[in-house]
Amino acid sequence: MGVPIQLEVNGQTVRQEVEPRLLLVHFLRDVLGLTGTKIGCDTSQCGACTVLMDGHAVKSCTVLAVQADGSSITTIEGLAQDGKYHPVQEAFWEAHGLQCGYCTPGMILSVVDLLESHPSPSEAEIREGLEGNLCRCTGYHNIVRAVQIAAEAMGK
């Protein structure tokens, strides 16, 4: 039995009937074709699937699409405005805060959320704030640098 949902994804209203067991991440990737959001684990731990739901970072593999009914979702595809990258995207580029890039979309959305509540975070706050996002490649060094660069750019 399909359940009708309506939500905003990257500023656009989407109406759809979905199976209750459909996960938000599969709705975004398979129904809407927004494959920037990744799936990296089966256990809700890696954060590769992180999107913003009403402004807060959530793991879209652990939210049912029906639970997102009425909410506003931002994925990595929706972060750039008018063809201009978000300062956090710029900073990841500048600091090379990635290697394979698989964790990067989720990482960037977590950072956007983190900087919202901690506009100038300490290194410890950055590492703690990104506890929910695992990176298999970088050792986090350049990711922390990217967050510092983004914080500075956004504070100006």
């Binding site: 992180t50 807060h56 970072a57 959530v58 793991k59 939210v63 977590s110 983190l114 704030g129 929910g132």
Partner: peptide, 8 residues
Amino acid sequence: GDRQVRYR
């Protein structure tokens, strides 16, 4: 958990 877990 982590930030994402605490939001939900």
